[in-house]
Each structure stands twice: as C-alpha cells, then as structure tokens.
Write a protein that binds this DNA or RNA. Structure first.
Length: 567
RNA sequence: CGGGGUGUGGCGCAGUCCGGUUAGCGCACUUGGUUUGGGACCAAGGGGCCGCAGGUUCAAAUCCUGCCACCCCGACCA
C-alpha cells in the first residue's frame, strides 16, 4: 500500500477534547474521528486494527465451539417486555420515535433466548455457544474517554446454552480460558476479579480488568500473591481495635470545637483508632446507625449486600437531627433520641476504650465498652479496604488502583430462558429451562487498552499481531530518487509475496516529517531507505518498540524481517 | 440530572471584560522557488455568515435573552 494513496489524517497537535492517552493517539494517528458524544467513525487505519482484534476474537471463540450470529440492532420491544428489561434499563435503552414497537438493542440475551425457545428442544442439542461481534446501543448519561464509553459501541457477546449446571460450569470455564488467551494475544496486562451480577441476574460473574488511571472501577490488587478484587467486595487483614486493660467507667466530656475525628483526637490527645465514627444511613426508608473506626470509610456496596437492598443512601442533616437530637459531629450509639438499629464494623467487635459522640451537640463519651454500653444488632465488614493493608493471601500490602472493565463473564442461569420460554426436554422427558451464560468483551476497549499499555511520547507501538501493517518502508526523497523508488518497490513486492502487509511512505515529504508520522502510527518495524545509505549499500532497520536501529544491506533485509515475523 | 468549562477556517489558539476600519496568529492546504536523515525556509494565495435564534444599538465575535453542541467533575452504568 502506498501511503500517498492511503487515508491517514495524522494530527500534529493534541485535540482539545481528548484526555486519555489512547484517545489522543487514536485521533492523532488517524484511527478514529468523533462524530457526536460517544459516537465514532473508524477510519481505514483504525478499522484495519479493529478487524485484527475481531479476528482474534473469532479464532478463540471458534476454538471453543462458538458459532457466529449476525443479530439485528433493531429489536421488537415486545420481546424485551417479556424479561421486564424495557423497564429495568429505563433511559439507557434507545427507543425509536417513529416506530414505537422497536428499540435499539443494548445487548442480545433476549434475542438469543428467543431463538433458543423456537429451535432448541432437546438436551441432545446442547451445549451451544452462540456469539456475535456487533454494535450495541446504550444511551449513556455521560460518554467519555473516546471509545472507552460510547453510546454506540462494538461488543463481542457470546451466550451459552446448557441443560445442566455442570454444563454451564464447563461453558463458563471455556470462556474464562478463551478470554485469557484473547487478552494475552492482544498483549494486554490484565487481572480477573469477582464481581456482583447487578441487574443481569444470575449467580457467578467475573470481570477482566486492566489497571489504568482513567478506569471507572476501583480494585484492590496484589499482583504477586494474585489477590484481586473489586473494591466493592475487597477484604483485607486488619487488626481489630480490641480491648485495653483497666478501661475506666464511661464518661461524658465537653468537646465544643471538635466536629471531626481529626479535631477530636488532636484537641483531646485521643488515639484515632479508638475514636468511633457514627455513619447514618437510610436503608429501605429506615434510619440505621453504622459504627465504624474513625479512620475508616463506609463501603456502600457492602451495606447493600448485607441488607440485601439497593435502597441505601446517607441520611441528610434534618433526618439526623430528628433521630438523634444532635448534629453530625456529636453522634454516637448511646442515648439516641429515637429507637433505631445500630450495626458496627467487625473491627469494633468487643472493643472498649472507645470515644464517640454523646448525641448532644458539643459532647462526647469516652471509655465506651461496646459490649457493656451499646446495643449492637450485628457486626459485619462494612469498611472500604485501603491501599497498603495486608492482603488475605500473602499478608503483603494491597494496591488500590483504578481499572477498566474489558470483559465480563456471567452465569446467567434461567432468568431469560424462563421469561422467553426457552425450554428443553431432559433424558427423562421432563421439561426444563435452558441454563444460560453470557460473556462480553468491549472490542474497542480492547484496542484502547492495547494503546494505553503500548505507547510512548512519540506515538503508538503496535505488537506484531495487531499492527495495521507489518512493515513501514520510508522512502526518503522518494519522488526525486529513482534508486530509492526501485529499492523500495522491490522490497515491498518481495515482502508482500511473503504475505506481509506493507505501507510504503512514497509521499513528497521531508524525512523528519515521515519519521514523526511513522512513530506516531506505530508499525513495529520501519525500513528507512534513502540515497545516503544506498551509496554505501545500506538501509536502516528501526524497531519501534526499542528504538533500536541497525544498518543492513538491502539484500539481507528480507531475512531479518522474515525472522522478526516468523514467516 | 446537578456543578464547572468551552464553542472564532481542517487542527491548536488570540480577540469578548471595556461594542467601532477589511476578524488575527501558528500549524495544515494551493502555487512558485530554495531546501531535504527527526514535523524546513522565502514569497504569493485559497478557505470564516465568530455554535444557532432573537433582542439592544447608528454599529455586535464583543452587551442582553433563549436554545444547541462538546469537554470535565459528580450522580448513573445491562
């Protein structure tokens, strides 16, 4: 391919709208252009790479017996009403204004279950793994970071159909292994975390995460021990507060200018870890006090799962005053004005010598013995894990990192098959719903993550498997020198015959311009051919990743490149 | 949806507070010339209803009102 004829609109300057390196580079290297918030066009160079990601996805899905479907983006609303997801998804689902019975599909569980209900009738016909690589549509409230979170996005989704739980376990495991292979082939460093299944329903689910400062999830990880968990469910080893000897009687004392734990401990010289924090939440419309160490933060996800509800929010100041008769800063578990339930973080189990608000503005208690002085309904882990705490496997410090969710695998169970009547007969002629799994990968996210992890200040650094072209030949003064043209074209022809994809920069541009563009585009090897080198029978081979340059005679270059690409 | 910011040629920006010739700069683009191994230089050009719609005024990129779009923070996120 001659670069003079290939559309690669590179940008010298960083577009104002892009914050994330991958987003900036995708724009600058001419891979994508934005068309609206969360909507992008893929330009030829970007689309070439995107297709290579898809090739890997297809190969690995086919390898576990997957069969590819092409499913409609327009779906009958009726099918979605059967699983109640029109309502559940609410504003996230795009509706069609002038054709009210159609919606834009945000995902495809329903359609898959629909086809299964029509055509899969016997346990003998399963397992099935059905997949698709297609655009999905979600009316994201706030698209961001380029293709990381869009309103239209490409997703590889697969769905497994099984007759038994054991069958589902096998399908799930196959996907887990395939996903490891896929991300490894893409050259992405990732980790897997257990996750909550959210509104999808179902039991087990895991997320494939990539550490990244722009990630929207937070995870606690220790790469050495292999501990990794979404912060929502992360745990760590922390010494409980415990008991001190000779704890005196509980005593009220005046704390007129101490509203925060910090002020309290500093002004009265009290140990921070024994200052208990009173967090007031409204849970299922009822006020609840959760007592925690002063230095800890409440983890709302843990609260939600403990109380088995998502109706959870912090109480406002008026509600607090009404229940406690005091303002925040002086709240505590003792002498609460109204009768409410009090729970405590596990670290406070059986602790004494505690300091807490007296539910009287400007007053605190000290020497509290939680067993003696408080009525605690239950102890549970309510706190958010902090960086540096010991992981539960090795005892070594945890890192708390932002992460991007690249893939998610779910054991769905029978939610969709039951709703849509996807039933089969088992060996005994008994009718039962298919047991489903669902397994997604954000295709564009994969590409963005590859760039996030493989770039430098000059541009993208593609790996051999995803690069849009294998070799970038830079013909210096190509338009002027017949010698350069001849060597460039001979090399291009020979390499193409070996099955390699070649981009030949034949443009009438100065050398520096071509070098900068080549580094930005990021093809793994550059072959620099110019008169200066040819006079000494040399061309230059440059490896993008290391920056290593070697001078080599034109006759030896094929060998070096075939070795590099193992062709 | 709440808060903040920005809309001026393809890209990056100045000008807006304090209204007043022909709206400016860098990059990119066209033509000619000189150059040519890490985003060259000189010269001459082309390209703008200053986001949109109203209003104020002799006069609006600039002031007022409404709307729209995009970005960031938060909420939300099958």
């Amino acid at each position: 391919m001659y670069q003079s004829q290939f559309f690669i609109p590179t940008l010298k300057e960083i577009p104002n709208d892009a914050q994330m390196p991958s987003h900036q580079l995708m724009l600058r290297a001419g891979l994508i252009r934005q068309i609206a918030a969360g909507v992008f066009s893929w330009l030829p160079l970007g689309y070439k790479v995107l297709k290579k990601v898809q090739d890997i996805l297809r190969e690995e899905m086919d390898a576990i017996g997957g069969q590819e479907f092409l499913l409609p983006a327009l779906n009958p609303k009726e099918i979605w009403e059967q699983t109640n997801r029109v309502e559940a998804m609410g504003d996230v689902m795009f509706h069609i204004k002038n054709r009210d019975n159609l919606i834009l599909a945000p995902t495809h569980e329903e359609i898959i279950a629909y086809h299964a209900s029509q055509s899969v009738k016997s346990y003998k016909e399963v397992p099935q793994i059905w997949y698709q690589i297609q655009n999905k549509f979600r009316n994201e409230p706030r698209p961001k970071s380029g293709v990381m979170r869009g309103r239209q996005f490409l997703m590889k989704d697969s769905y497994s159909l099984d007759a038994t739980e054991e069958g589902l376990d096998i399908s799930y495991e196959k996907h887990s292994e395939a996903y490891h292979k896929i991300f490894n082939r893409c050259g992405i460093k990732f980790f897997v975390v257990g996750a909550s299944s959210g509104a999808m329903g179902g039991s087990k689910s895991q997320e494939f995460m990539v550490e990244n400062p722009f990630g929207e999830d937070t995870c606690a990880v220790n790469y050495e021990s292999g501990y990794s968990s979404n912060i929502e469910v992360a745990i760590s080893k922390v010494e409980p507060v415990g008991r001190i000897d000779n704890c005196p009687e509980i005593e009220k004392f005046a704390t007129p200018n101490a509203k925060t734990i910090k002020e309290l401990s500093e002004q009265f010289d009290l140990p921070v870890e024994r200052c208990a924090k009173s967090v007031v939440y409204i849970i299922d419309s009822k006020p609840v006090l959760i007592l925690m160490r002063g230095i800890d933060e409440l983890n709302e996800s843990k609260v939600q799962s403990y109380f088995a509800t998502n109706q959870v929010r912090p109480a406002d100041e008026n509600e607090i005053l009404d229940v406690f008769g005091a303002h925040p800063g002086s709240l505590g578990p003792i002498n609460i004005k109204k009768q409410i339930q009090v729970f405590a973080d596990k670290l406070l189990l059986d602790a004494n010598g505690l300091i807490s608000g007296a539910n009287e503005d400007g007053q605190h208690f000290k020497n509290i013995d939680i067993e003696r002085d408080c009525k605690i309904e239950g102890y549970e882990d309510f706190r958010t894990v902090l960086a540096g705490e010991a992981d539960t496997i090795s005892g070594n410090p945890l890192k708390v990192v932002n992460a991007i969710e690249l893939g998610h695998i779910f054991k769905l169970g029978t939610k969709y098959s039951e709703a849509l009547g996807a039933k089969i007969l088992d060996e005994n002629g008994k009718e039962k719903p298919l047991i489903m799994g669902s397994y997604g990968i954000g295709v564009e996210r994969v590409l963005a993550c590859v760039i996030e992890q493989n770039h430098d200040e000059n541009g993208i650094i593609w790996n051999k498997g995803l690069t849009p072209f294998h070799v970038h030949i830079l013909g210096l003064a190509y338009d002027k020198s017949e010698q350069v043209q001849k060597v460039c074209n001979e090399l291009k022809d020979q390499l193409e015959e070996l099955g390699l994809e070649i981009l030949l920069d034949d443009r009438k541009e100065r050398p520096g311009f071509k070098f900068k563009d080549a580094d930005l585009i990021g093809i793994p090897v550059q072959v620099v051919i110019g008169d200066r080198g040819l006079e000494e029978n040399k061309v230059e081979l440059k490896f993008r990743k290391t920056g290593e340059k070697i001078e080599i005679s034109p006759s030896n270059i094929i060998e070096s490149l075939t070795k590099f690409y193992e062709v």
